[in-house]
């Protein structure tokens, strides 16, 4: 279980990688996450999560082209692996099944 566990922030990163599809590299991911979630995310936190996800096998990466605006350094593009996709689906399924199981009376409704 330990290897397949998906943390909340990891889930967010994984989703963003899927979302950006062919353009998922560090800065793009960072900005997308900041824009969508509104939280502040450091480069360290992002790359640390990416590193973990790659080790778990949810992501793989390829090196891209070098540009001047990156101090002559190449980008690393991330792609979702089938295992990663499955992990995301599992999380969603779990959540949906639990949402469905909540009795109507337990929720206040409108405010959601």
């Amino acid at each position: 279980m330990k290897g397949t566990y998906l943390g909340e922030f990891e889930e967010l990163v994984l989703l963003t990688v899927a979302l950006l599809y062919d353009h998922a590299y560090g800065v793009a991911l960072l900005e997308e996450i900041i824009e969508r979630s509104g939280r502040s995310v450091s480069v360290g936190a992002l790359h640390s999560a990416l590193e973990r996800l790659e080790t778990k096998g949810f992501l793989r990466s390829r090196m891209g082209e070098a540009t001047a605006e990156r101090g002559g350094r190449r980008k690393r593009y991330f792609i979702l692996t089938p295992i990663g996709e499955k992990a995301l689906r599992d999380v969603r399924d779990l959540r949906e099944s639990m949402w469905k199981a909540i009795p109507q009376t337990a929720l206040t409704g409108g405010a959601s």
């Binding site: 590299y25 560090g26 800065v27 480069v43 790359h47 090196m63 605006e69 990156r70 350094r73 190449r74």
Partner: peptide, 14 residues
């Protein structure tokens, strides 16, 4: 990790 992380930092900086 050095190459891409540093690249990201450069890009963000500019």
């Amino acid at each position: 990790r050095q190459e891409d992380v540093l690249g990201d930092l450069y890009e963000l900086f500019y």
